[in-house]
């Protein structure tokens, strides 16, 4: 076995164990937590955050950050809804248009970071504010309904192959995970993402066009946001322009809990997925124990800090 594999394998094992222990704890505390219906509910609530987290994993691996993923998600499905309801796009085309909007938002952030050399925090904070504002402007602060497309809600909520409770959203989420995994570990994009995060100057001096690849990374993040937007709006049957802000923090938390390093170069797609599930199990479990939403957020924050601290301790232990 090799050092690199060993490390990520151990890390994955640890967070999977944490997930299992957490699940077992809530299942013992609250009968019904482990029921089929509740597990499906948890999985459904993971889809949106999970897709956002997958996209932002790429950005964080380059030692960047994307604060605009939540509002880009909203903006792309609002635009998709506008295209469908106001511009008369057929539903398929309207959905594609949503992805285009997501890619454009990500691409713009990427341009600001890679070409204009804005710090990622600032560039994507600006994009967050712009997409948040634009969503409200174009929608007139009113939800955009997809009622004219009767099957739109089935995209997320239809039962896959007629299995009751097994939503289509899961299949789409699994598809997203597979795409992210292949991109991250088997393609130039993924490899250069890690190279840039590990040492951007070395990457540039190796003849890699780091500007272009970084733009592409943010674009990927935007595309995953649009994907999340599709699921989100399909679940609700509408695009809600006032949602979105705040989603980025849970997604970033998921990626970080999953072992993606904020200083770049290291990340894990399976880790991000587990991280997203840890957050959903926690939220759902606490809710089932009648803990209020506000306190759920407090606990999630503590878990995030704890996870990163634990990882640091482990790394330090290995260094000595």
């Amino acid at each position: 076995m090799t050092k690199t594999n060993n490390r990520s394998a151990t890390q994955l094992l640890i967070i999977v164990s944490v997930l299992i222990v957490m699940f077992a704890f809530f299942a013992l505390m609250k009968p019904g937590f482990a029921s089929y219906i509740n597990v499906m509910t948890i999985a459904l609530s993971t889809c949106v955050n999970g897709l956002l987290a997958l996209g932002v994993t790429f950005v964080i691996t380059t030692a960047g950050i994307d604060l605009s993923i939540g509002t880009t998600m909203t903006f792309s499905c609002v635009m998709s809804g506008i295209a469908f309801t106001s511009w008369g796009f057929p539903i398929g085309l309207a959905i594609a248009f949503g992805f285009l909007v997501g890619a454009a938002c990500g691409g713009t952030s990427g341009f600001a970071v890679a070409k204009m050399k804005l710090p990622p925090f600032i560039a994507t904070l600006a994009m967050q504010m712009m997409t948040k504002g634009l969503s409200l402007v174009v929608s007139g602060i009113k939800p955009v309904y997809f009622t004219a497309a009767p099957n739109y809600q089935k995209i997320a909520l239809g039962g896959f192959l007629g299995i009751d409770g097994f939503y289509n959203a899961f299949v789409l989420f699994i598809l997203g995970i597979a795409i992210a995994y292949v991109l991250y570990s088997r393609t130039l994009l993924g490899r250069y993402t890690q190279a840039i995060g590990s040492n951007e100057e070395s990457a540039r001096l190796s003849g890699i066009n780091t500007t272009r690849w970084k733009m592409l990374v943010y674009m990927v993040s935007g595309l995953f946001s649009a994907f999340a937007g599709l699921i989100m709006s399909s679940r609700l049957g509408s695009a809600q322009p006032q949602l979105g802000a705040g989603y980025e923090s849970e997604a970033i938390a998921a990626a970080v809990i999953g072992g993606t390093s904020m200083s770049g170069g290291e990340g894990s797609i399976p880790g991000t997925v587990i991280g997203a599930f840890i957050i959903s199990v926690l939220t759902n479990g606490l809710r089932s124990m009648a803990v209020t939403t506000e306190w759920q957020t407090v606990v999630t924050g503590m878990v995030l800090a704890g996870a990163v601290y634990f990882d640091l301790l482990r790394k330090r232990g290995r260094a000595n």
Partner: peptide, 17 residues
Amino acid sequence: RYGLMLGLSVQTNASIA
């Protein structure tokens, strides 16, 4: 600083260019 990606593997460093 300018030659290697220290956190990446020997294999990746050899093929990165």
